[in-house]
């Protein structure tokens, strides 16, 4: 696959836009321009700067990279099974959009903004209440696991289905990070953000943390260029708190 077709349509069945993210090099406008935004195409690399190989990603393990801003965490997962395909999602304003599928050889690699769509809880360098609970593992938020869980108010999201809300107070899916997989060299690239991301609220809400983790809000806001270091969540943060 590696090209992610997606559709965007107005809330009440208005215009339908069908396009390929890799062909979009500017902001795509829905009626208010929120549903897809392309950013610089950035390669996922490890801490040393070596490109990450998609097939080397451990299964069901949380990885974190920063995208599209230097201080906006994203979660990368290589799920134990293939994702669903062409999932219809609805944001809080009722706008419908389509998430195409996971990437990689088995269509199991997905990435989402790790800023909770409810009230912005996210991994920071000291702790994370936000992590994937693999299938079969219980959580206070969702009995059977298989969900990204935010342990702040127990929202859960389905990574196999475009970050759809499974439970909790969140009223819209996690914004997803549009990935491209290069089948020739097995590399991964982030190209844009699909869905409603709350980056601005996030920058405003966590002043102290921006100072501590990123050297200030302005630094955190800078757009990521060329490559994005990708590390395990347990490495990125001191403590993973999960219920």
């Amino acid at each position: 696959m590696n090209r992610r077709d997606f559709i965007k349509m107005g809330a009440l069945g208005g215009v339908i836009v069908l396009t390929r993210p890799s062909l979009i090099d500017q902001k795509l406008f829905a009626h208010d321009g929120r549903l897809y935004e392309s950013f610089e195409k950035v390669q996922l690399v490890d801490e040393e700067g070596t490109p990450i190989k998609a097939s080397a990603l451990e299964v069901d393990v949380d990885y974190i990279f920063q995208y599209p801003h230097a201080g906006t965490p994203c979660i990368l997962l290589n799920l134990s099974e293939k994702s669903e395909v062409n999932v219809e999602l609805k944001d809080a304003l009722g706008d419908i959009y389509l998430w195409s599928e996971g990437v990689g050889k088995s269509g199991s690699i997905v990435a989402y903004s790790a800023i909770c769509s409810h009230a912005l809880t996210h991994p920071n360098k000291s702790e994370s209440f936000f992590a994937y609970v693999p299938k079969g593992k219980a959580s206070a938020a969702i009995e059977k696991g298989g969900a990204i869980v935010c342990s702040s108010h127990l929202s859960s999201f389905d990574p196999r289905n475009g970050g759809k809300v499974l439970g909790g107070p969140a009223d819209q899916p996690l914004a997803s990070i549009v990935l491209e997989h290069n089948a020739q060299d097995d590399t991964l690239w982030a190209v844009g953000v699909l869905g409603s991301a709350k980056f601005n609220d996030y920058f405003n809400a966590f002043k102290t943390e921006m100072d501590r983790d990123w050297g200030g809000k302005r630094q955190a806001k800078k757009l990521v260029k060329i490559s994005a270091p990708t590390v395990k969540l347990t490495k990125f943060t001191k403590e993973v708190i999960q219920y």
Binding site: A119, L120, F129, S151, S152, N204, I241
Partner: peptide
């Protein structure tokens, strides 16, 4: 993280995060 107890340090951090989130959900 409770070592078999009902209470834990992680839950205390979650309490603070819960509180921040619920207020931000009203005002932000």
């Amino acid at each position: 993280d409770g070592d078999g107890k009902y209470r834990s340090k992680g839950l205390a951090k979650a309490t603070r995060e819960w509180y921040r989130g619920i207020l931000d959900d009203m005002f932000m």
